[in-house]
């Protein structure tokens, strides 16, 4: 019960990847949306640390050293927290 509340609180404090500022180190908390599976397959997995390198219509993130470009709409489906 307490663990669930703690987890909910963490998700509540999370922001979407689109909203995070460029240059930040982030940890993926949750994937929420229709493209979850596609995002997970390309490398955006829960608990993984990533960094957002640039912002814009399509943002660029570093995931395990690889640069991945994704649209804002997809970024909205990735919930992250600052590391």
């Amino acid at each position: 019960m307490i663990a669930d509340i703690a987890s909910d609180l963490k998700v509540d404090s999370a922001m979407t990847l689109s909203k995070a500022s460029a240059g930040c180190q982030l940890r993926i908390r949750q994937l929420a949306g229709s493209a979850c599976q596609r995002l997970r397959e390309i490398g955006f997995c829960e608990e993984l640390e990533i960094s957002k390198l640039s912002d814009g219509r399509n943002m660029i993130c570093s995931v395990c050293g690889t640069r991945l470009a994704l649209s804002k709409k997809l970024g909205d489906q990735v919930l992250v927290e600052m590391v």
């Binding site: 229709s34 493209a35 596609r38 995002l39 390309i42 399509n58 660029i60 690889t66 640069r67 991945l68 470009a69 994704l70 649209s71 709409k73 997809l74």
Partner: peptide, 12 residues
């Protein structure tokens, strides 16, 4: 139904 969004690996 869902609009396909841009998702691409940028190789070194």
């Amino acid at each position: 139904e869902e609009v396909s969004h841009f998702l691409m690996e940028l190789p070194s």
